[in-house]
Simulated scan of single mutants.
Amino acid sequence: MNDVKRYIALFSILVVFTTMLAGCNVNRMGKDQYYVQITADGLEKNEKADNGTPIKLFEYKLSGFDEGGKEKTMEFTAPKNLRKEAFLRVYYSDKKGVTSWEEVKKDDIPSKVKEKLGVK
């Protein structure tokens, strides 16, 4: 009977853990967050996937700022030309660089970042 309880407990833990991970983006977990503003079109790059299919990417190199206002250059690509004046939260690690990004509203940007970006 103890084995049955042990299996039920392990199964329950596995279900909870899997449910938690389903909503997580591992490219964002444990990464530093910076904020950037798109001010110009990305540099268009035409590349090929491993299977030879052509891929169009847009490359960006922008100054990003963390919540404290510390600056770091962010380099990343997007599958489309991003909207000018858009604000992005960029997820960064020293080891891998930019691993993910998402558009955010101006109101969601920390005040020190707004100062650095010249946003009112």
Rank of each mutant, 00 (worst) to 15 (best):
Y7S: 13
Y7F: 13
I8S: 11
L10P: 07
F11K: 06
V15L: 11
L21N: 15
A22T: 13
N27A: 04
N27L: 06
R28K: 15
M29R: 14
D32V: 04
D41W: 08
D41I: 05
D41L: 11
G42I: 06
K45F: 03
N46P: 07
N46A: 10
E47W: 06
A49S: 08
D50I: 07
N51V: 01
T53N: 14
P54M: 05
P54Y: 05
L57D: 05
L62F: 09
S63L: 04
E67M: 02
G68Y: 11
G68R: 14
K70W: 04
F76I: 01
A78T: 12
N81D: 06
R83K: 15
A86M: 08
F87L: 13
Y92H: 14
S93L: 13
K96T: 09
K96W: 07
G97R: 10
G97T: 06
G97P: 06
G97D: 06
V98S: 01
T99E: 04
S100T: 09
E102T: 15
E102M: 06
E103K: 15
V104R: 06
K105S: 06
D107H: 11
S111G: 11
S111I: 14
K112I: 03
V113E: 01
V113C: 05
K114P: 09
K114S: 11
V119E: 00
